[in-house]
Design a protein around this nucleic acid. Structure first.
Length: 414
RNA sequence: GGGGAGAUAGCGAAGCUGGCCAAACGCGGCAGACUGUAAAUCUGUUCCCUCAGGGUUCGGCGGUUCGAAUCCGUCUCUCCCCA
């Protein structure tokens, strides 16, 4: 398995550039690609993953899929699990100091990652390393020598810190070491290319500085945009809950994709599917002329994405399902069962708010009462408006809260 | 080491001449209407408790008082200025 020779360097660069925000620098990238081809030496493409949120979603997939492209072009991918750096907490894009993780948490998260990235990457061409391997072994004097290679002004020039300093928020000393750690990873691995989201710009550039200081050819930095999440506002992230996980069921995935705001449709096409750019531009043109209905465009998007992570026919059945539920307003096929404990029963009757709270559709019975008062609650399709209602409990009653939350109620025996 | 400012519900931010404060307002969240599932818009809601009532909150602890987010003491944390 050698370096791809059936694609011209220009074609390769075009593929690499798809969706990318910035390549630092394209000339260096070209040079590296040429050398790789001529010497038949794969490039070492690095990606650091922070093992904080273990579920891989479409946002991270944007970068992973680009790595897959490099593999397809014959290069080597190195995933760094930032187990050591996670203990520091990446300050990128954060307005606050991040909580530090325990080693056990990091370990479990890292394992989950390893299982999941195979969905996108070719396992046999992917090397996974933990940066504690070298960072943990450094002595204090090693650290001092390393930090001497950059300056405080350099580190403090990044936006996150500037903003935090200006807004009188604390910046921990350990946090300014973060980019240095990450940059040092590149030195140790002799990375040719480092991939990342735009929020990694500073960290990745630090890698170039440190590599240069070490006499290495600095890595090319390839930055992908941060995929905007389902809310259309914030970047997709697990903690914000605006994400689509690549391991989600086709139905969930499809449904979530149908809920993105219209403005995001084409960015999603570009970043999360393999639909050729020409075709995307045609759709966008038709969309702007009012010839292409947004819903139709989204359906295509949802089908494309679902079929990347599932079998072919999954997309179609997810679409049928979606139409049935949302257009025809039928009940979903699979309604999760929720066990209701009999402890709150009197004479076989339960207070409606108890059921809602027990189904986890409300955090407290106060919240449940509010939901009832707002007309959000239905039992077997019938709206309940009396918040004091006590209902006669029957197995298989379908509880609906809001538009999307369903549960089939089952009496538990405890 | 010295001087100063501050910590209020998920976030931001009022209140701080003691009672009318479960605490303004904005954002976010949730729900209803409207729709193409959304978004935008409008409306309601947003500590807990079977709730026309009750209970626990305003960094922690203790005190003054009939009564404290509001006054006093102390502790913890953060920021700024000077050295």
């Amino acid at each position: 398995m050698g370096i791809s020779k059936d694609k011209s360097i220009d074609d390769q660069i075009e593929l690499i550039r798809r969706g990318a925000v910035e390549v630092i620098s394209e000339d260096e990238l070209r040079r590296k690609l040429i050398t790789a081809r001529d010497e038949d030496r794969p490039l070492r493409v690095k990606l650091g993953l922070d093992p904080t949120a273990p579920d891989i979603h479409l946002g991270i997939a944007v970068v992973l899929r680009k790595l897959r492209l490099f593999q397809d072009l014959g290069h080597e991918v190195i995933i760094i699990i930032g187990d050591f750096t996670a203990a520091i907490g990446d300050p990128s894009g954060k307005s606050k100091t991040r909580p530090q993780l325990s080693t056990e948490e990091i370990q479990t998260n890292a394992e989950t990652y390893s299982k999941q990235y195979c969905q996108i990457l070719e396992p046999e061409r992917t090397k996974v390393v933990f940066n504690s391997e070298w960072l943990d072994r450094m002595t204090f004097s090693d650290v001092i020598k390393l930090t001497a290679k950059t300056t405080v002004a350099r580190v403090l020039e990044r936006d996150d810190f500037v903003q935090r300093l200006e807004s009188n928020t604390s910046v921990g000393v350990h946090e300014i070491l973060y980019p240095i750690c990450q940059g040092y990873d590149s030195v140790v691995l002799k990375a040719d290319i480092e991939m990342g989201g735009t929020d990694q710009r500073f960290n990745n550039l630090m890698g170039r500085d440190l590599q240069r200081a070490d006499g290495q050819d600095p890595q090319v930095v390839l930055l992908m945009p941060l995929l905007v999440g389902l809310d259309g506002a914030e970047k997709m992230s697990k903690s914000l809950g605006n994400y689509v996980g690549i391991y989600e069921s086709p139905n969930d995935m499809y449904g979530k994709l149908m809920s993105i705001p219209d403005e995001l449709i084409f960015a999603y096409f570009e970043l999360t599917t393999d639909v050729p750019l020409d075709e995307i531009h045609e759709m966008k043109f038709a969309f702007n002329n009012g010839e292409l209905h947004p819903k139709v465009a989204k359906q295509r998007l949802a089908r494309e994405v679902v079929s990347i992570y599932n079998h072919q026919d999954a997309a179609q059945s997810a679409e049928d399902y979606f139409e049935r539920i949302h257009k025809d307003k039928e009940l979903p096929d699979e309604i999760p069962e929720v066990k209701i404990s009999p402890k709150n029963f009197t004479d076989g009757k339960v207070w409606i708010a108890h059921i809602i709270a027990e189904s986890n559709f409300a955090q407290s019975s106060s919240e449940a009462i509010r939901l009832v008062r707002q007309g959000a609650v239905k039992l077997n399709g019938e709206r309940i408006t009396n918040d004091k209602a006590r209902i006669e409990f029957q197995n298989d009653t379908v509880l609906q809260v809001g538009k999307r939350k369903f549960a089939r109620l089952i009496l538990s025996n405890t």
